[in-house]
Nucleic acid binder design. Structure first.
Lengths: 377, 377
DNA sequence: CGGACTTCGTTAGGAAGTTAACTAACGAAG
DNA sequence: CTTCGTTAGTTAACTTCCTAACGAAGTCCG
């Protein structure tokens, strides 16, 4: 739709802070954007005439004249976030202020259906400005040139299946799912207000999302935080093997150890990590011992991260990592080995990846508005 | 001296690029600073009247009118860099364009003498704008509030001894020596033109300087890159100990292994790492085997760094790390365990720390000019 | 030696944003 | 109901930097 209405720099800045805030009065916009009142007046007028902002009420600050409140306008459009999880595909559509407009989830195999369902629920008149797809894989530049795709065969097929369901002409960004979850913790989880932290995810695999100065660190190959490549075992007389650490700390290994440790009379053997943690929470052996040992292992992983990055905060997530039972053990081992570092459990859970992908999509969508390149309707 | 002559923003920008370039014509300044010709004219006039820049000649680009060349003026002043090394103290005084004005070195115990000697050799009429002191220690905020000091007792006394020799009123910045050396590699060493890399120093101790986007990463406690805290030994059935990795990979351990491996008939046993490497270069056993083993150890260290950061480039430095004999072994082990990463040897050597500290001091000194806070004469 | 051409630097006019001062709107106190 | 203090928004003068056009100072070439 419509021509690309190039915004002035000040209008772009005001739009960006308005999207961040959701809604705001003009004085608030002025102080958030670091602009003067007259400039904000001009910018708001410009945004209103482009239908990117609308007057949505008034707000009185107790004393004095009441201020006009503005929110995003109908032309600001929406963005789409897709989490291609190992079991389920989750899709969210959001406005540029982050409000949820559409949501869908399917088993991984029917990923494209979830995308189509969410797209149908988005407002038709306004442009879709960005799409972020989260995959459990390192990403690499597309052969074709412009885009990105999963680097290994792991996530490739599903990504291709989803691609055909996406509307053409909308910029698509691929991002690692752990990085997305880290962003979610940063924006609305356990790392709110931080500028630097690490999000350590322990589940079937192990991964680290690194946030430095509010930015995700991706690395030269997009492989920053791929802790499975840490040398392990590592000692004077041992030879490290590739991916050996994941095979040792991952949840499969935890269950394998449980199977070995289980004796007759210990009751039914847990088949999932959740069940094992539930037994440990009741104080039952050998579950308790296994969980304590797992906590020490995670603590060592956290120590490795801390030795390199000294992030000041580590958020634990993932199917086994997020359990608060681990905290004392992790903190003890980390404190013994490394620097004073806060350790907390994730508060977002499974939804973290979609939520973070949506946050990222909002950022890209706002850029799409402020930096001119108009997306397809 | 003199009042603080607040510079306009454009004059500050021009001064910054002029300091970076050393000398430049007005058209060059315009393109480097991203300013228009008239604005540069005004800025240069302002800088000249403040004696921060001087006309230093003309340059012809073949055809057309020849351009006026400008360089830093006498009022731009100088900065001081101090490397409190484990054995020697090195001091350098530089102008804000990086040219060396004074140099001194003493044994560590007489550090203050080196500082006094270098200070005496600096031009008297112009202000000293910044001092950077590099120490082999993590740094922490001063109790007093404003400054920083070494966090542990290791470097404290020497730092205090040097402090009394420093002129009062000049801002002093403390920085880790490995971080300084990393900056030196970035600016004039093996990492020129990079935005992100790791500088891995192996000597008596082990340390990592992390540069991301041209900035040194310091971490929440100033302890980023303190690899001695990596969990080691690390295996299913072993308990990691604090600082155990340094005790294993450091040069003391290398010589200890040499002592154990040496048999009668192997010739004189090397007493220093340099000697051991020299024997290995001649192809003599057991030196060659020991060096190959050391290379694999360093490769594992590099793999740990790569697993977390994926920096794309690792520069090896330090008394044992900088030897190019290590390169094939390090590359092989790193390639086996982790991501495609370039590995090169440092080209700067022992001087890296002072050079990097001087670079940092220049940056701080330029900030001192452009951001107003006038230093004492 | 004198155009023709190219590059440097200045002058003139305009765009964008800031500060300062003024007007407008609102609540509370007298 | 008026008046006063406070906060919102507008108007006006000024600052800063840009673009465009022009004059100045070189080189190249016949």
């Amino acid at each position: 739709m419509s021509e690309a209405p190039r915004l002035t720099e000040s209008a772009s800045a005001v739009f960006a802070v308005l999207a961040q805030a959701g809604s705001a009065t003009r004085p608030q916009l002025a102080s958030l954007a670091g602009l003067s009142k007259p400039t904000v007046s001009a910018a708001v007028a410009e945004l209103e005439s482009a239908r990117l902002a609308t007057h949505s009420g008034t707000a009185s600050s107790g004393t004095g004249r009441s201020a006009a409140v503005y929110g995003l306008g109908p032309a600001s459009g929406s963005v789409l976030a897709v989490d291609l999880g190992p079991a389920r595909t989750r899709v969210r559509g959001c406005a540029l202020d982050g409000t949820l407009l559409a949501e869908a989830a399917t088993p991984r195999a029917r990923a494209a259906d979830a995308v189509r369902e969410a797209l149908a629920a988005l407002p038709a008149g306004a442009p879709l400005r960005a799409i972020v797809v989260a995959v459990g894989d390192v990403t690499e530049p597309d052969r074709a040139g412009t885009g990105m795709r999963p680097a290994t065969a792991k996530a490739g097929p599903v990504f291709d299946a989803v691609s055909v369901a996406l509307p053409p002409g909308v910029p698509v960004h691929l991002e690692n799912n752990v990085n997305c979850a880290a962003l979610a913790e940063l924006q609305e989880g356990a790392a709110r207000g931080r500028r630097t932290f690490g999000y350590l995810r322990i589940g079937v695999g192990i991964g680290l999302g690194i946030v430095i100065g509010g930015q995700v660190l991706r690395g030269a190959n997009g492989a920053a935080g791929e802790l499975a490549r840490l040398p392990y075992p590592w000692d004077d007389d041992r030879e490290p093997r590739q991916e050996a650490l994941e095979a040792y700390v991952g949840s499969h290994a935890l269950l394998r150890r449980a199977a070995r440790a289980w004796r007759a009379g210990d009751g039914p053997r847990p088949r999932t990590a959740e069940r094992l943690f539930a037994l440990a929470a009741e104080g039952r052996e050998p579950a308790r011992g296994l969980v304590a040992r797992h906590a020490a292992d995670v603590g060592r992983l956290a120590a490795a991260v801390t030795a390199v990055l000294d992030p000041g905060l580590i958020v634990l997530g993932g199917s086994t990592g997020a359990d608060p039972q681990l905290l004392p053990g992790v903190r003890a081992e980390l404190g013994r080995l490394s620097w004073p570092t806060e350790v907390v459990s994730s508060q977002i859970g499974d939804l973290g990846t979609v939520v973070g992908a949506a946050r990222l999509a909002v950022v890209k969508g706002v850029q799409n508005v402020t930096e001119g390149a108009q997306a397809k309707d």
